Computed example of a mutant assay.
Amino acid sequence: MSKINLSVLDQSQIRRGSNAAEALLESGKLAQLAEQLDYVRFWVSEHHNFKLVAGTAPEVLIPYLASLTKKLRIGSGGIMLPNHSTLKMAENFGILSTLFPGRIDLGIGRAPGGDRLSAYLLNPSNTFSEADFLQQLKDIQAFLSGSQEDGSVMEKVQAYPQPEILPEYWLLTSSGGSAQFAAHLGMGLSFAHFINPNGGDETAEFYRHNFKPSEYLTEPKVNVGIFGFCSEDEEKVRDWITDFQFRMLFIEMGGQGEFPSLEQIKKMSFTLQQQARMVYNKGRFIAGTPDQMKAELNKLSEKYETDEIMIATPAESWEDRKKSYELFKSVV
C-alpha cells in the first residue's frame, strides 16, 4: 500500500472521576490535536443509554468541533439513521455543509447505537427493516441534493438549506450487510473492525467488486476503524490492555454499577466465558510500542487494501491519549 492516512474516531468516553462536560471538552482538544498532526478526518459516534459515553448526538457535537478547527474533516461515525427523521437529518447536514463547506462527512449506520428500547423511544416508527433503511439512504441523498424526482415526496417537500458542497457519504458496517447498499448507491464504506474483527476484508472486496459509480463518488473508497493505543512505555501498554479488556466486558455486561479501578481489575478472577470473550476481543484492538504499531497498521492496511485507518483511543489520562495519537502519526 501507499502511505497510510490516519483518522480519529472519538466516542467522548467519560474517564473515572470525570463527567460528560469534561469528556466533551476533551473531544474538542482532541480534534485540535488531530488537525495539528494532519489526521484526515475526525468522526464522532452516536451511543444511547450508556453512562460512560457522552457522545449521543453527533449532529450537535460536529458544529462545536468544526468551529474549533479550520481544515480537518469532521463527521458522524455515525448517524444511526433509523433512529431519526430522514428529512430532519438532511436539514441538519445541509446546515453543517453550508457552514463548513468541504469539511463535513455524513457517516451513516443502521445499528441502534444502544438497546432496542432506546431505539424505539428515539423513533417509535422504526421497523428495523433493510427495505426501510435503503429508502432512508436514497431519501437523504435526494433531500440534500435538491432532487425533485417525479412521483417522489421531494416534489412537495425540500430540505433547506441545500449546500453548494455536499457532505461525503459513508456507510458504516460491522457485519457486512450495509456493504451492498454502499456499493449500490456509490457511497464510501467504513468497516468497524473494532466491533467485529472477522470478515472485514471479504466485505471490502465484495463492496469494491460491486461498486457502482455515483454523482457523489466515482471510485470505491474504504476505511477501517480499530481501537488502538501506542506508548514507548511497555508497562503503560500492559495496563491499558488490562483496563480496556475489562471496559469491553463491562459494556457487554450492561455497564451497571461503578467502573472499578485498575488495581481492582488486576485482582479480579474471570469466568471461562469471560476469558473466552477476552480472547475474541484481542482482535478488536491493537496496542504496543511504536515499532509494533507500525507493523500492525501495515497489516491492517494490506488486509483491507486501504490507505486510511481510523483509530479510537480511550484512555484514563489525557497525556497518554495525546501521546498515543502523536506516536501513531509518527510511524506512518
Rank of each mutant, 00 (worst) to 15 (best):
I62A: 03
R41M: 08
L106H: 06
L99V: 13
P82R: 02
Q32P: 02
L99G: 08
P58T: 05
A34K: 11
I74G: 05
H84G: 03
R73M: 04
G107S: 07
W43I: 01
S67H: 10
I79V: 15
K71R: 15
A54P: 01
G75Q: 09
G77M: 08
Q32T: 06
Q32Y: 11
G107A: 01
N92F: 15
A54S: 00
L72Y: 14
I74L: 14
G77T: 04
E59Q: 07
A31N: 07
T69K: 08
M80D: 03
N49Q: 03
I95W: 06
G94N: 12
P101D: 14
E91N: 13
K71P: 01
L96C: 02
I104Q: 06
E59F: 12
E46I: 08
A66F: 14
K51L: 03
V60N: 03
V40A: 12
P101M: 12
W43E: 04
I62S: 02
H48M: 04
E91F: 09
T56Q: 11
I74D: 01
E91L: 10
G55I: 06
L52W: 14
S97V: 13
G55F: 10
Q36P: 02
K70P: 12
T98A: 14
F50D: 00
N49A: 00
I74R: 00
L61H: 05
L106C: 13
K29G: 00
V40P: 02
L52S: 04
G55T: 04
T98I: 14
I104F: 09
V40Y: 15
S97L: 12
H48F: 13
